[in-house]
Nucleic acid binder design. Structure first.
Lengths: 233, 233
DNA sequence: CGCATCCTTGAAATAGGTCAATATCCGTGG
DNA sequence: CCACGGATATTGACCTATTTCAAGGATGCG
């Protein structure tokens, strides 16, 4: 029964989820030889908005890729204040550093909305990696990307003001090179605030200070009248 | 001649440097089979205090391990303000993420004092890694450690005040568990300030605010009268 | 012993956090 | 399709931590 259920979970991986998984930063780098073996050990997990996936210090037996929704990775200080470390969206992988680091989660993870995840068993993944350098290389790629993102985050926190961080985020989400565009935020503003290391109020104020360079906010929709003006902030 | 010189460089690797290199976070994880091959392609680099090793955007053909001294990894904003991303000391490896990421440095690196480095050629290292999963695993280990350090840094920047960051640093450098001790800072205070994401003045003030919990500063020597008192900051 | 560098201290300016009140958004159910 | 209500977001006022600028003091190297 237990195994029957597991098989069902895998079979139920719908076309859209499966293609997201195959295109995830982690899986996408591997060839047709290992991918099936990995898909064997993947299970699908659905969690509701605000559910805590795991906590810092918990025993870890899996890492994850996001298929649908957004997950918040964060730490707590002893007063219970929270600080986001990374926001993971579709195709992002997290906690994969535990492949090398140990069996304890090093941050908390919470679903910011209803989320679908691919779950990779750590032990079994280590076994597969042991036999397949291809997997090791994918892990290296993945870790390098995350390290780069983290270093960007440190530098931005230390060098940029709130409006600059917001401008930087907008420029990174924009398709066009210049002129006018509009963006739809993929998540709530409170999540963006956390991602940028700001209180929600500070994000609001940053947006309103960007009005003078042609940024208009209506709900999740952001109008940008001149991309180049944003770059000068 | 050129090759003669290279050989000399390697031969000149003195006992102390060599043992540091063999114990560096990167090399130490590998067995006797690959290590000699890697030592073959290592060259030793000496740079003077304040020398810039490379700049963000420079073409990259090597990564490094520190043997002696300290190296500052930092970014610039467009006004020329600097923010440290990581401080690397003896046995630390940096820029190894370029093995996967590309051939452009993603930050600036500057010697904070006279420094001796082991230089790993990226191309040749990639070739060795291709044949030796052991090397890939060492790289994963190394990247995971750096990622963890970076995430700690983000969380600390966002959650802790200046005195808390200093207390946290001191507690991490202390050997004893409780009672009184003293520490000798391994580098200048201005470097510590940068590492903690503070202006030098803020570090000074943080130290003087820690006086009331029994922290006394004289030059590079820090006296701590009660470790447990520090933990409560 | 002297000079340069590094560190500390003070005073003023600022960015952002916190708290509280109001406004807006959006999913739900009618 | 609209109206309702809870959750989100904005705004204002205040407060605190940290930066910045400027000057004085300590430190250590030659």
């Amino acid at each position: 029964m237990g195994s029957r259920e597991t098989v069902n979970k895998i079979l139920r991986l719908n076309t859209r989820d499966k293609s997201t998984l195959l295109r995830s930063s982690f899986i996408a780098q591997m060839g047709p030889t290992v991918v099936p073996a990995i898909l064997e050990l993947v299970s699908i997990v659905n969690v509701e908005a605000r559910d805590v996936l795991f906590r810092e210090g918990d025993h870890a037996d899996a890492f994850y890729s996001v298929l649908v929704g957004y997950v918040r990775l964060y730490r707590l200080n002893k007063d219970g204040r929270e600080a986001d470390i990374r926001i993971c969206g579709p195709s992002d992988t997290f906690a994969e550093c535990l492949l090398a680091l140990g069996d304890t989660y090093v941050y908390n993870a919470q679903a910011a909305e209803p989320v679908t995840l691919a779950r990779f068993d750590l032990q079994r993944m280590r076994q597969i990696a042991e036999k397949n350098p291809e997997v090791l290389k994918a892990v290296i790629r993945c870790l390098s990307d995350h390290l780069l993102v983290s270093m960007d985050c440190i530098a931005n926190d230390r060098l940029q003001t709130a409006p600059q961080r917001v401008a930087h985020y907008l420029l990174g989400s924009v398709n066009a090179e210049e002129g006018a565009t509009s963006i739809r935020l993929p998540f709530q503003k409170s999540l963006l605030a956390g991602k940028l290391g700001l209180a929600p109020e500070a994000l609001s104020r940053a947006f309103s200070s960007l009005r003078r360079v042609g940024v208009t906010v209506r709900g999740r929709t952001i109008q940008i009248s001149d991309i180049n003006a944003l770059k000068d902030i």
